[in-house]
Design a protein around this nucleic acid. Sequence first.
DNA 1: GACATTAGTCACAATTCGTGACTAATTCGT
DNA 2: ACGAATTAGTCACGAATTGTGACTAATGTC
Lengths: 237, 237
Amino acid sequence: MPERASSSGRATSRRPALSVDIVSLTPHGRRLTALLVRAGDARSKERWELPHDAPRADETIDDAAARVERAALGAQPAMLEQIAAFGDRRRHPSDAVVSIGYVALVATGANTSPGDDAAWFSVEELPPIAPRHRAIVEGAMHAVRARLDQSPIAFRLLPATFTLSQLQEIYELLLGRRLHKASFRRALHASWLVEPTDEWRSEGRGRPAQLFRYAPRKRRGSRRGVRFEGVSGSLGG
Amino acid sequence: MPERASSSGRATSRRPALSVDIVSLTPHGRRLTALLVRAGDARSKERWELPHDAPRADETIDDAAARVERAALGAQPAMLEQIAAFGDRRRHPSDAVVSIGYVALVATGANTSPGDDAAWFSVEELPPIAPRHRAIVEGAMHAVRARLDQSPIAFRLLPATFTLSQLQEIYELLLGRRLHKASFRRALHASWLVEPTDEWRSEGRGRPAQLFRYAPRKRRGSRRGVRFEGVSGSLGG
DNA sequence: GACATTAGTCACAATTCGTGACTAATTCGT
DNA sequence: ACGAATTAGTCACGAATTGTGACTAATGTC
C-alpha cells in the first residue's frame, strides 16, 4: 500500500499525506550549490524541484530519505540529517500535506553532475521552484549554519584530506563572512579536530600547504558560560 | 476527510499517516515538568501519553499543534515550536507513520493542573509511555537546550515580571548546572534583554529583590568568532 | 541586637580574542 | 637567474571577555 508521491494525476484525487524532500549541498568553487532534478510531470519542460518521494510502507523516513538521495545523487552523501517538517499551505510538487525536509552534505570530488536529469545550482540563484521547496532549502541553510559550531559538519563537505585554507574557505562559505587566518587556526588547534598528515600539496602558485585529516580527539571538558541571544555576553559556571 | 488519531480500532486497520504531538514544559519548584494526559483507549487505566492528534483536512500542522495544546492545557502556551518529525519504528499510541513533535513553554503561574485527565510529571521521572513519546520528550529537551543561547526562550517559562534570581534558576534548570551570580548578571546586562521595573519583591527572608521585565533592546552588532564543536576555540572575523 | 539569608556589586587574575606583521616556500615573468 | 607575486604558516601584543572570591545591602528570625 505505498502511496506514490509524484502524481500521474489520474485516479483518486487524494493528496498524499507525506513526502520526504532532500536538499543536497556541496561547494562548487566559491559557491554553495544544491541539487535539483527535472520535474517528471513537467508542463513546461524546464521545471526543477528537490528530489522527493513518499515513504513506502514499513519504511522509516530516514530510510526513505536515503533511498531518494541515492536515486538522485547516484551515491551516498557524507551526511544525511533531518531538518524539520513542513506542513503549511505552501505548494509542493506532489501536493503532500506534510513534507519532511532533509539536508545532505556531499564532499568536493563526489559532486560531479549525476546525469542529465539533475544539476547543481548555486543556492543564491535557484531557478523557480515550488514555494515549499524554497522554504525547505532555506531551512537547510539555517540548519547547517546552526549546527556549524555544534558539530563538525564542515568536514563533510571536504575530501578525506584537505588543506587548512580549504577548510577555512568552507567555513567562510557557510558563514557568509571572512575569517582571520591566525584566529581560525588557533581555535582549530585548540579544538583537536584535525591532525596533520605528512603530505603536502602544491596547488598552483604559492607555498605548498600541508594536508590535514579530520581526527577528533577526546576534548578536555572546558565548560563555558551561557550566551544570551546568539552572541552577547556569557555567564560563568 | 480528517483521519482521527486515536483509534477506536474498528473499521479499516489503516495506520494514520500523521500525528502532531506536544511536549509542554513548565517549571514546578526546582524541577522541569511535562504535561501528560490519560490515554483514552486505556487497557490499564493508569496509562499516560503526550497530547496528540492527527491534523484535520486543510489544517496546517502548526494549527493542529495549537489546537491539541489548547485542548490539553486549556490555555495558550507562551511558546509553541516544532522540534522535528519522528518516523522510525518506535511505537506510538495512535500507530502513526510519522509524528511531528512540538515543544510548548508554559509560564510559572499558568501551569496549574488542568483537570483530572492531565498532570505534570517531572521530566526526570516520567511514567511509562510509548517509546516514540519518550523520544519526542528527549527531542524537546535537546531542542530547548540548543535554543537557549540562541533565542530568549527562558523568559517564556516566567511570568511577565520576575527577579534575576528566578531567571538564573530557570537557566540552571535548563542547563543542569549551577551558574555564578556575578557572571550571569554581567552577561545579562550586556545582552540588553531585561529592564528593571520600580517594584521590589520581598520573598520570605533576605533582602528584597528588584523585579525585571523582558524587554529586548536593539543590540550592537558584536560579530564574534566561530566555535568548533560546542565549546572550544573561536576564530576571529 | 546578633545572626542567618538572600540580593546585588566590585575588582582582579587569567584566559581568550582580534589583528597586523612577520617569515617560508613556491610559481611566473622577464 | 632573479625579483615580484602569491599562498602558507607563525608570532606577539593590546584589548576584551570571563571565572571567581569577597565585599556591601536589606530583610526576617531568634
